[in-house]
């Protein structure tokens, strides 16, 4: 349906091709979260892999910082419509985490859990194969708290609500269990290129 009188302000051609449907380009770094930014003490920070309630492996901050590190640069897409290009992150890939824990993924699904009790579900296949990391640096600096520091999940090929802020661990689940937003009508997968914003998209 053409909207009467709307012409729009189109992004330049190369930008337009990098934008998933319904997204617009922003130069700043907006914030999306459901509550206040938690205060996290690095001395007490831990990152834990669990299967159900059973801990499989846990790292302190110092131990986590000693894991093999990977850099990634690329575009991120938030379901609230903004996209940001060429963001630079550094952290530990999920492949390296599993290797350091000496395990293979015990199930095909997991929930990422944040220090703010936020959860979001991601299939393991969307995390392994260098597709995702637990990031601890953004643009060469520690990640600011408003952007999820000290550590956040980074799954850049999915809408950014899947990239849980203030992440404290990954909990493997038998089936694909809905997380916080997914329980509230947001899509279980969240692929921006297929515009999977809401259930049924």
């Amino acid at each position: 349906m053409v909207t009467r009188g709307f012409t729009g302000r189109r992004p330049a051609r190369p930008d337009a091709e990098r934008l998933p449907p319904g997204q617009y380009l922003t130069e700043d770094f907006p914030v999306l979260q459901l509550g206040p930014t938690p205060k996290i003490d690095l001395a007490r920070w831990r990152f834990t892999l669990r299967e159900g309630s059973k801990p499989l492996k846990s790292w302190s901050w110092a131990e986590f910082e000693a894991l093999p590190r990977t850099r990634w640069k690329g575009d991120i897409h938030c379901v609230t419509k903004w996209s940001k290009f060429d963001t630079a992150w550094e952290g530990v890939t999920i492949d390296d985490l599993l290797a350091a824990a000496g395990i293979a993924a015990p199930t095909a699904y997991l929930l990422a859990e944040g220090y703010d009790d936020y959860t979001t579900n991601v299939p393991v296949a969307d995390l392994t194969g260098a597709k995702a990391m637990v990031a601890t640096r953004y643009a060469g600096e520690p990640i600011p708290p408003d952007h999820g520091g000290p550590a956040r999940l980074l799954v850049p090929h999915l809408y950014f609500w899947k990239s849980a802020k203030w992440v404290k661990g990954l909990r493997f689940t038998q089936k694909d269990e809905a997380g916080f937003w997914e329980l509230r009508g947001y899509h279980m997968v969240g692929d921006p290129w297929r515009e999977q914003r809401f259930t049924g998209d």
């Binding site: 053409v2 909207t3 709307f6 012409t7 729009g8 189109r10 449907p21 319904g22 617009y24 419509k81």
Partner: peptide, 14 residues
Amino acid sequence: VRLTAPDGYQAQRS
């Protein structure tokens, strides 16, 4: 909301 220009270009906002 989703606005559509005559050439099909669209913009969405909340």
